Amino acid sequence: MAAKDELGRAGEERAARHLTGLGYTVLDRNWRCAQGELDIVAECGIHLAVVEVKTRRSASFGHPFEAIDERKRRRLWQLAYAWVAAHPDLARARAVRLEAIGIIGADPSYGQLEHLVDLS
């Protein structure tokens, strides 16, 4: 596995632990379909949270959230609705929202973590 892939996986693991610690229930990780992949799908109260995780060793090339532009948000919405269509029993008419977790640090286990709720 490439170093960047290992960094991304470690960041996703940290993000999942963070969400669980906040009371979220992780329903799916690294869900794939023809349109792409969702990092984490979780439920939090009445919401179904589709969480994009961005991990960077440093902010030298920009903050992780800068990679989530309008085009990326539109794609995440498409993927979110594809996930809902594929999992009607888990979606249960929940309100869907986009979230992002950015992690900066050489070791994602201890790096700075930021969590944005509702990227609409």
Score class of each variant (00 low, 15 high):
98 L>E: 00
77 W>F: 06
59 A>K: 08
106 A>D: 11
34 A>C: 09
26 V>I: 15
94 R>A: 14
80 A>S: 12
87 H>S: 04
36 G>K: 08
32 R>S: 13
83 W>A: 11
83 W>T: 12
40 I>D: 00
69 D>Q: 07
74 R>T: 13
21 G>P: 02
43 E>D: 11
62 G>H: 01
69 D>N: 13
75 R>S: 13
21 G>H: 06
110 Y>F: 08
78 Q>W: 07
32 R>T: 13
93 A>V: 02
5 D>W: 14
16 A>E: 12
94 R>Y: 14
33 C>H: 12
47 H>R: 15
55 T>Y: 03
62 G>R: 03
99 E>L: 00
99 E>K: 03
1 M>H: 13
119 L>P: 00
92 R>P: 02
4 K>S: 15
83 W>Q: 12
67 A>Y: 09
108 P>K: 08
47 H>D: 15
110 Y>K: 08
68 I>Q: 09
20 T>Q: 15
117 V>S: 12
19 L>G: 04
75 R>V: 06
14 R>T: 12
21 G>I: 03
76 L>Y: 07
21 G>F: 05
30 N>R: 09
94 R>E: 14
109 S>K: 12
69 D>M: 03
37 E>P: 00
104 I>H: 02
112 Q>M: 11
45 G>F: 05
69 D>L: 02
62 G>P: 01
49 A>C: 11
42 A>T: 02
90 L>I: 02
93 A>G: 12
53 V>E: 00
79 L>M: 10
90 L>Q: 08
10 A>P: 01
28 D>S: 15
40 I>H: 03
9 R>Q: 10
30 N>C: 02
87 H>C: 04
18 H>K: 11
28 D>F: 03
95 A>E: 14
16 A>G: 10
94 R>K: 15
11 G>D: 07
107 D>F: 08
61 F>A: 11
27 L>C: 04
62 G>N: 01
86 A>D: 14
20 T>Y: 10
1 M>L: 14
65 F>E: 06
77 W>C: 01
109 S>C: 09
6 E>M: 11
58 S>P: 06
33 C>K: 11
116 L>S: 04
82 A>V: 05
25 T>Y: 07
39 D>N: 09
19 L>A: 07
90 L>Y: 01
45 G>E: 06
24 Y>R: 03
71 R>P: 07
76 L>Q: 05
97 R>V: 11
94 R>M: 15
42 A>V: 01
75 R>Q: 14
87 H>E: 04
51 V>W: 03
48 L>C: 15
42 A>W: 00
93 A>D: 14
106 A>Q: 11
